[in-house]
Amino acid sequence: MNHTTTAVADAPAATETARRLTFNILRYNPQEKGSAPRMQTYHLDEAVGMTLFIALNELREKQDPSLQFDFVCRAGICGSCAMMVNGRPTLACRTLTRDVGPEITLAPLPVFELIGDLSVNTGKWMRGTSERLEAWLHGDAKPRDIDRLEERMEPALAEQLNELDRCVECGCCVASCGTARMRADFVGAVGIAKIARFRLDPRDKRTDDDYYELIGTDDGVFGCMSLLACHDVCPKDLPLQTQIAFLRRKMAGKGWA
């Protein structure tokens, strides 16, 4: 195998002229008196392997130091940088300009409180939802003796749990959700998936009656209109469609019982 060609796949040759990118970015600083939302246009020469993380930082460093956005891990694992990219919610850090340019429109996620420009307060929303849904493991009342062997779990179940535990709370599912636009208190796919995760976990001692109390409402699993954009946009490919359908059936059963 010729290893020398594998460094960055599909990288254009060095001599190729870089594309000129156009960014249309929604600007608004609620902290500034008289500031009103507007679109602002920037231009930037594309570079090989350029992500929106690289592009936005370059814009801020070279053209507009006031531009607000959020990045933390810049590796697609922390969920900080979700934004609307050409109308679709996604993680900006792992979006290559190659795939969305040359004209790129960026806007903050809807539904969440706006901090400024592309920065929204997903943290506040997620904490509020977690509190409301009691989204933590409700184990035995008596704490385990941690000097002793851990409780056993089937390896396949651990893997299934991890599959649902992979949510990074980025907010893409909420931003893409029809119900969330109409019902301010809708828990979103993220909330429903959390309940599904704890429900699957034998270490959580809650019953379906308990879960029904939390999500058996129109702000919970019955609010979902099955548009399922959440499933399409989830950057972590969580099985949201199946989980929502499954939980709705279980909760409907509880409601009729």
Binding site: G139, D147, R148, L149, E150, A158, E159, L161, D165
Partner: peptide
Amino acid sequence: PKAVRELAAWGVPWSRVK
């Protein structure tokens, strides 16, 4: 080891031995 076991009780889906 205690920390791993505490986290197991708190819900961490540790990969398990088969």
